[in-house]
């Protein structure tokens, strides 16, 4: 059993869910949880190498001005860590190669996709096979969605869960793949970890608003082939306690919110790898 396990939550330049994401990590039992501003990484004062679990929270990196997380991805790809030749992206690759866990939520998912880190076919860093684009409704929406978890996926975050009920809060969450072949491969290799569904967590749905953005195949979250890198549009850190549930005042619910499971799975994987 590994101890201590350490989580880093990145913030800055428009990120805004860092507080609740760090809270989720603490509740999940991480021994150390640091909220780290992007500038601390750029200055070299903090390094990803010192952590086991990288959290990329929701928000609007650089206002999503050039498309969701596009300018944010551009920063990580090109900014160099002070007094080294290393780009932040290199540090990130090293973190992945070392077996670190990454969770990208909403804007963090958009960031992983735009960095070419998801779905990461054949370890081909930077390759762009999928994207997240404007919701079919043409608007930002905050609404809760049922999510069916794919048992066959290697995703370590969604292990042993049938489904989740979480809020989505985005304007650019429609998942699309480059082509049919890419989509087929995502399916075949278990990259599709979460899909929008109806309340019964049955099959994936294209019905609005159960599928809130028109994502193809109802895709709400995908992972890489190892299952250690996971991105999803819905917000697990927004449902940590039953009082977050929109109907808590009328339904009998467990104390712990469903979203916490994602973080607990991460902690337990790190404690007992394999």
């Amino acid at each position: 059993m590994k101890t201590p396990i350490k989580a880093i939550v990145i913030t800055g330049y428009g990120t805004n869910c860092e507080m609740e994401m760090a809270h989720a990590c603490r509740l999940a039992g991480f021994d150390r949880v640091d909220i780290v501003h992007m500038s601390d990484l750029v200055e070299g004062e903090k390094r990803l190498d010192d952590y086991d679990f990288l959290n990329l929270p929701g928000g609007f990196l650089d206002g999503d001005d050039l498309g969701a997380a596009s300018a944010g991805a551009n920063r990580i790809l090109h900014v160099r860590v002070k007094e080294t030749a290393e780009r932040l992206f290199d540090q990130l690759r090293r973190f992945i190669a070392r077996g670190g866990l990454i969770l990208g939520v909403c804007n963090g998912f958009q960031l992983l996709v735009k960095l070419g880190i998801l779905p990461l076919f054949d370890g081909n860093y930077g390759s762009r096979d999928v994207t997240l684009t404007f919701n079919d409704s043409g608007r930002f929406e905050d609404r809760w969605a049922y999510l069916k978890a794919e048992a066959a996926s290697p995703c370590i975050f969604t292990r042993s869960m049938a489904g989740l009920y979480l809020p989505v809060r985005h304007g650019e969450g429609k998942f699309i793949a480059k082509d049919e072949k890419t989509l087929e491969r995502l399916r075949r290799d278990g990259h599709i970890a979460l899909q929008y569904s109806h309340e019964d967590y049955g099959g994936a749905t294209m019905d609005y608003p159960a599928n809130p953005n028109g994502s193809v195949a109802g895709i709400a979250g995908i992972c890489d082939s190892t299952g250690r890198i996971f991105g999803l549009m819905p917000h697990p850190e927004a449902y940590l306690h039953y009082t977050n549930h929109p109907r808590w005042s009328r339904e009998k619910l467990p104390e712990e919110g469903m979203g916490l499971l994602i973080f607990k799975n991460a902690a337990s994987f790190l404690r007992n790898p394999g």
Partner: peptide, 8 residues
């Protein structure tokens, strides 16, 4: 269209 849940 307004995020009423951010900050958790």
């Amino acid at each position: 269209q307004y995020d009423h849940e951010v900050q958790g």
